[in-house]
Computed example of a mutant assay.
Amino acid sequence: MCGGQGNGMADADQKKTPPDKSFPASATTRIPFAIALAMLAGCADSIGFLEFSQLFMSFMSGNTTRFGVAVANADWENVTRVASTIIVFCFGAFLGTLIAAWVGRWRLSILLTIQAVLMGIGLFMPWGTFAFPLHAYPIVLALGLQNAILQDEQGRSIALTYVTGAVVRFGTGLANLMLGTVAPSFWLQAPLWGGLSTGAVIGGVLQIRYGENAFLFPAALAALLALVAVVLTVARPGSTLVAGSSPPPDAGSHAKPSDAIH
């Protein structure tokens, strides 16, 4: 009898405690982190674009277009330069996703710390050659890794380093709003675009004034976000502020979880 009651209490406690999905289920942290990270990406991309002769640090659609143009012109040095950047970015997303799976509820803290460190390392890397811009690779790796920070339990992530998806969702969302079928995620698209574009303006201004040292700003922002994540993870263990069964990553504040807690 007591054993049955004990098992019942344990089951009740298990149901009360959100599973460790390592993704902020609460919009209180998910949305501000997403906007801040979009601003970080826009800032770093703008600095890199000016610093590395129009090479994108996070906008791989732009780099893919440049790759195609370089191939068409048989500009093999530029082909190597852009292709290697895309590969490094892809590897960052790959590596970040594996790290996130390994570290559980410390995902936000550890990935943001690694991102801050990589951006700092970029300032001390050798410049390399035009075809292999070693100096840019740590920044590109950090921004690729950033895309794994706000994934949900099914591997879907917010578009934190590019803006096309946000613009498309905002446009289609406006139409759906008129039709009365708008998704909750519609309301996050404009702030994401605003964060990324604001970061791009800040990055441009900083690069013009400080050159490559401007990368210290997005590095410091990543470090600050990492500190906030550490405090939340330590102070609120098991809280939906850092983990839990979550809605789709770009959902609005009132969206329901995508998976039932089990």
Rank of each mutant, 00 (worst) to 15 (best):
A136K: 04
P18Y: 12
E77C: 02
I121C: 12
F59D: 02
P24Y: 11
F132S: 09
P126S: 10
F56P: 00
L111F: 09
A101P: 03
V140R: 03
A72V: 06
R107W: 07
L37V: 03
M39H: 02
T80Y: 04
P18K: 04
A12Q: 12
R66C: 01
A70E: 04
I110Y: 06
R105M: 03
L98Y: 13
M57Y: 01
N78M: 12
L98V: 14
G68C: 08
L145G: 08
F59W: 07
I139C: 08
Y137P: 01
N78A: 13
C90Y: 08
F23N: 12
T113Y: 01
E51Y: 05
P32V: 08
T17M: 15
V69F: 07
I114Y: 06
Q146K: 06
G122I: 04
G6V: 13
A100L: 07
W76S: 05
T17H: 13
G104V: 06
A44D: 00
I35E: 05
G96S: 09
S22F: 07
D13Q: 15
V69A: 10
D20E: 14
L111H: 09
G62N: 05
I139W: 11
A136W: 07
A25S: 14
G6Q: 15
N63L: 05
V103S: 09
M9C: 11
T85G: 11
F132E: 02
L40G: 00
A36N: 03
P126W: 04
S58H: 00
S58N: 08
R66I: 07
G6H: 12
V79F: 10
A72N: 10
N7L: 14
L143W: 02
A101D: 14
I99C: 03
P32Q: 07
T129S: 15
P24K: 07
F91H: 03
M39K: 01
W106S: 10
F59Q: 10
L111K: 11
W102V: 11
G120F: 04
N78I: 02
I121Q: 02
M60H: 04
A74E: 12
V88D: 00
W127V: 15
A25E: 08
M125F: 12
E77Y: 02
G122R: 00
A38P: 04
D11H: 13
P126D: 09
A101N: 14
I114A: 13
G92P: 05
T97W: 01
F67M: 13
M125L: 12
T17K: 14
D13V: 14
T80S: 14
D13R: 15
F56N: 02
F49C: 00
A131E: 14
T129L: 10
M60Y: 06
A70Y: 07
A41D: 05
N73G: 10
A142M: 08
D20I: 12
C90S: 12
G104R: 15
G62F: 03
F56D: 00
K16V: 11
L134W: 12
P32L: 09
T17P: 01
A72T: 10
G42T: 03
